[in-house]
Amino acid sequence: MSKKSKLQDIKALRGIGHQLDPVVIVGANGISPTVIEEISRALHDHELIKIKIPAGSGEERKACADAIANATESSVIHHIGRMVLLLRNNDEANPKLSNLSRFGFA
């Protein structure tokens, strides 16, 4: 995949992300095993999800987003403020649940 094609894909994914509501909100207790499990389940079902992370400095929010991505084996597509857009492809995703399929991306 060329660099330009990859950037176009990221732009398209970010466009889909604007239309999504957060499916998981990470509370003041932070990243617990239960939260990771719920995010992982949502990624399995929907492939592309938006989550809301706790307030903090930009560096703290970036570290939180990266920690969640590492724990769920997903990729951070975009993060701005407290919103994080995560992607984990699932070859066996249900087309009725997958945000990629629903928005014609896959």
Rank of each mutant, 00 (worst) to 15 (best):
M1Q: 11
M1F: 11
M1I: 13
S2V: 04
K3V: 07
K4T: 14
K4G: 09
Q8E: 10
Q8G: 05
D9K: 14
K11F: 04
A12F: 08
A12S: 15
L13E: 14
G15C: 08
G15V: 04
G15Q: 14
G15A: 13
I16L: 13
G17H: 14
G17E: 14
H18Q: 15
Q19D: 14
L20T: 12
L20D: 12
P22A: 11
P22I: 01
V24Q: 06
V24H: 02
V24C: 09
I25Y: 09
V26K: 02
A28K: 13
A28T: 05
A28W: 02
A28Y: 01
I31M: 09
S32T: 15
S32F: 01
S32C: 02
T34V: 14
T34E: 15
T34F: 15
E37C: 10
E37Q: 12
E38F: 08
E38A: 15
I39Y: 03
I39G: 09
L43N: 06
D45Q: 13
D45A: 13
H46V: 03
E47Q: 15
E47N: 11
L48K: 09
I49F: 14
I49C: 14
K50N: 00
K50W: 02
I51G: 03
I51R: 06
K52V: 05
K52P: 00
I53G: 01
P54T: 02
A55C: 08
A55L: 12
G56K: 05
S57K: 10
G58K: 09
E59S: 15
E59T: 14
R61Y: 10
K62W: 04
K62A: 09
A63Q: 10
A63I: 02
A65S: 13
A65N: 03
A67E: 01
A67Q: 02
A69F: 02
A71E: 01
T72A: 05
E73G: 07
S74P: 00
S75H: 13
S75K: 12
V76K: 00
V76G: 00
V76L: 00
I77D: 04
I77V: 15
I77M: 03
H78E: 15
H78D: 15
H78R: 11
H78W: 15
H79N: 08
H79M: 04
I80V: 12
R82N: 08
M83Q: 08
M83E: 07
L85Y: 12
L85N: 06
R88K: 12
R88E: 01
R88F: 00
R88A: 01
R88G: 02
N90Y: 03
D91A: 10
E92D: 12
A93K: 04
A93F: 05
P95C: 02
K96H: 02
K96T: 07
S98W: 06
S98C: 08
N99V: 06
N99M: 09
L100T: 08
S101D: 12
R102M: 10
R102N: 12
F103M: 08
G104S: 09
G104V: 09
F105P: 05
A106V: 11
A106W: 07
